[in-house]
Write a protein that binds this DNA or RNA. Structure first.
Lengths: 246, 246
DNA sequence: CTAATAGTGTCTGTTAGACAATATCTG
DNA sequence: CAGATATTGTCTAACAGACACTATTAG
């Protein structure tokens, strides 16, 4: 950011008065919220309104909105606010995904959105009426989305899959207490391929990210040890990927 | 992006006229440009102007500037433009680093910057007079930077180091032709630790990212095979990290 | 020849992958 | 007991780490 350069290069800059008198892009934040339910990866979407002048009426879109310069201290706070408003939860995991900005992505003018990426446990969601979970089949969503939200979602899915290969991210999709086979199932759903049971267990246990609780899950078979996440909220990075598909 | 929601939630939105009449944050793009020279990792910085109303006068800052809604088709084009203007090169590698936005990072008002991350070969730079390369000692820069550019730079250094552990990114820091020991030296400079020669060679060669040219580098010792990058502009991802520290 | 750096080979430890074996519950 | 799933063990292949060894130039 170099004010003088900017003024020289683009004809924009500070006047004598300190007034920044050139057009500004619209600034928004959107959140890609993933969860697992029904053995599917799901993403939370909202329907666009149909009012006059609204772009992409009635299409599905990522939850998000304009940055409110009075209300939002920073971008992460804005994303957390959107997430809270749409789902009623504060996500155990919220990371920045990237930003998308161009002259053409919003018919109302040059706009840039800051996209975030959240993982929440299945049962944590208390939805507003216009929001709903949409399943992702084979890494793709069936529905067409508003704006460039299809691109943003595709990027989020790719990021999630990539990171699941070598991090503990899926732990944030789990309820408070879960078994190792539960966790493995979630890894397999996200990666869409089976994993080796014993290698999986060795890896997760040696990562020191979960701890057993003094309970077992019972069923019509051998009971399974229940675990919970250790307090550290940071994801764990493994030094190798899972069985990489060639 | 849901216009109705936004209007309800924040008092912002479309009027009957379709007019978006609420305050917009400033939108900028900044570029963290790395290169290697003198056995050091270097970052390209510019000095802030001293004019009236200019924030952080005379401090060093990342090259960047306001998005020009007339000139810039999208954010990446804006970043490429800034890079070109500052160094005269088009980077062989330009990726998005993230975005930083808050009420307080720029004294002129709520602002959000989209940060990019570029790697260029040492000799490719044709600098403008107010730009200069600053060495990074032990992962840190000596100088204090304008705005939150210190944070952005720290994040870029961390991202670079992380990725160098398991990708071919340093290849973009190399001149057109280079030897394997050259490449290893660059890895070692970025990681700030020595690597095993034979493991390094095996890994790079089996990654199928470089190809030999019909020349050798000669010196007062055994000649070294010269290589060049294969055409694919995408970085290669290894399935393991290098000898991870502890 | 020596000095210097390029490049290869050998051994060892770790761990993923495959898959077999055993454990512990319900009914 | 049978059925089902959890958990552990065994064997092998791949590969990084350490480090020794060989190769090829200039002078």
């Amino acid at each position: 950011m170099a004010g003088k350069d900017r003024a020289q290069e683009s004809g924009q800059g500070l006047g004598k008065s300190g007034h920044l008198d050139f057009p500004r892009p619209l600034t928004t934040v959107d959140v890609v919220i993933f969860s697992i339910s029904g053995d599917k990866l799901q993403v939370l979407l909202v329907q666009r309104p149909a009012g006059e002048g609204e772009p992409f009426p009635l299409l599905l879109a990522l939850p998000g909105g304009f940055v409110d310069v009075a209300k939002d201290r920073d971008l992460a706070a804005c994303a957390a606010r959107k997430l809270k408003e749409k789902t009623g939860v504060t996500s155990p995991y919220l990371e920045q995904l990237g930003s998308w900005g161009s002259a053409s992505r919003d018919p109302r003018g040059w706009s840039a959105t800051h996209a975030y990426f959240a993982l929440i446990p299945a049962e944590a969601s208390v939805l507003t009426p216009d929001a709903r979970w949409c399943p992702i089949h084979g890494g793709r969503l069936k529905e067409k989305l508003a704006f460039d939200h299809g691109d943003i979602l595709a990027s989020a899915i790719q990021r999630l899959r990539n990171k699941v290969e070598y991090t503990s991210l899926p732990a944030y999709l789990m309820p408070a207490e879960f078994t190792l086979p539960d966790l493995q199932r979630v890894y397999e759903i996200v990666l869409d391929r089976p994993l080796e049971k014993s290698a999986f267990r060795t890896r997760i246990l040696s990562a020191d990210m979960i701890e057993p609780v003094a309970k077992m899950r019972r069923g019509p078979n051998r009971p399974a040890q229940l675990y919970r996440l250790k307090k550290s909220s940071e994801p764990v990075y493994f030094v190798r990927t899972f069985n990489p598909p060639e």
